[in-house]
Design a protein around this nucleic acid. Structure first.
Lengths: 231, 231
DNA sequence: ACTTTATATTACTCATGGGTAATATACGAG
DNA sequence: CTCGTATATTACCCATGAGTAATATAAAGT
């Protein structure tokens, strides 16, 4: 199975590699097209025939890449979720108090919700997935929810956020953000950035202990890291 | 159910009337059952056979009351929308400044969203309706949205709400509220009332010119805070 | 060249579920 | 009692669309 021969240039690998890459590209093309179709028409009204036609292939060809329609749906969702996971990891790694992190989370999340992959996070019904995939989706949603809550409780602990019900506040914020996926349209008057800017301020206005000046608040460097880490 | 003729009763009408009422009751029973089914399983997975079975009748019997599946869906939605229209009319008739009215709207809307009929306002896809009904739904949604915006602009005008982007603020609030219809469950830890209480305060905290005291926002308990002019 | 593997097509199956036609039954009206 | 209307049932139709052979084609490997 090991075909490597030359030391530096993987020439002999090329066909193999390029083939694999070509396959992945096609897979992704299917996902992008299917996602568009699912969003435009709704999962149940969208047909695989239609998706295939848009790709200039026929339905059975899709089955070279996916097990079935619900599998495609799941992978569309997963691509969006991946991006969320990515920037959450970034924020986790970065510093700042609870409020600052919450704002960053809101900002990034809002921007994602204005993309097709972001919309897929809220416009798809878990009940259309297999039991296994549904579980994965549930776990991810729960995890994101807990991240919101954690930043809020952290903010309360470090004094950047007023004492409040973290659960309900997280729901309120998540609601505003997720709703973007339902009303946002690229050709509309609002840009994704302006929405993200506005929401990251507005949704935390009521929570912040200090009024917004214009600069971020570095505040008392109280690096408190308490609280239940999920998982 | 008295079917005998009495002095004040238009008895010759009675059979006719009682028959009509019986019909309406059945119609409503269908809607309640269908709504449950649609919410539990999702519109496309729910079958009319299943709905009929729950009512101890057979599918074709449903067609005595409705033109088709999408018609039932529409009427489920309409029942929820009716309630929204009702309390909006009440609030319109009542007094108070923009902020007070906005709070009342949020409170009432939140409570509705915790009911089946409320959930139907956000969980159903307009694309499942006929063109005619879809137009009606769109108009209603638009109208509710404008009501939110109007209370905000009124509040800005009368000084109870800080200057802000009414459109985005309305979207943010509506998002939080509509989201309730996606996560709320009767057997959960949160009561509809406590959610409504919390949200009517929390979602307006950032907008209010005055801090919340305990009751009423008529008396200038706290003078306008300095700084922080958003937008 | 010849084989193998990946990928595509044509031509189907087939369960599902909305909707309809023909018909039966209950019931108030005359 | 009989007729007409409303409401229900049984027994269908049939469009739809996911998924599956059987098979063709093209490129990679030897």
């Amino acid at each position: 199975m090991d075909t490597r021969r030359s030391s530096s240039d993987p020439s002999p690998w090329m066909p193999f590699e390029s083939r694999r890459r070509a396959r992945d590209e096609k897979r992704e093309a299917v996902l992008r097209t299917a996602l568009q179709s699912f969003l435009e028409q709704g999962y149940h009204r969208a047909t695989l025939n239609d998706v295939a036609e848009r790709l200039n292939i026929t339905k059975p060809a899709l089955y070279n890449y996916f097990r079935g329609k619900d599998d495609i749906l799941f992978e569309c969702w997963a691509l969006g979720q991946e991006r969320v996971d990515e920037f959450i990891a970034e924020i986790e790694a970065s510093g700042g108090n609870g409020l600052a992190r919450l704002r960053r989370l809101i900002h990034a999340y809002a921007k994602i919700m204005a993309t097709d992959f972001g919309a897929s996070l809220v416009r798809f019904d878990p009940r259309d997935l297999s039991e296994k995939n549904r579980k994965i989706m549930r776990a991810s949603k729960k995890s994101v929810d807990l991240t919101f809550r954690r930043y809020i409780t952290e903010g309360i602990a470090d004094g950047s956020i007023k004492p409040c019900d973290a659960k309900l506040s997280a729901f309120a914020i998540a609601g505003s953000l997720n709703w973007i996926g339902h009303w946002y349209q690229r050709d509309g008057a609002l840009s994704a950035d302006s929405i993200a800017d506005e929401f990251s301020v507005r949704l935390t206005e009521g929570l912040a202990t200090k009024q917004i000046t214009s600069r971020a608040q570095s505040a008392p460097a109280k690096k408190q890291r308490s609280g239940g880490r999920p998982k």
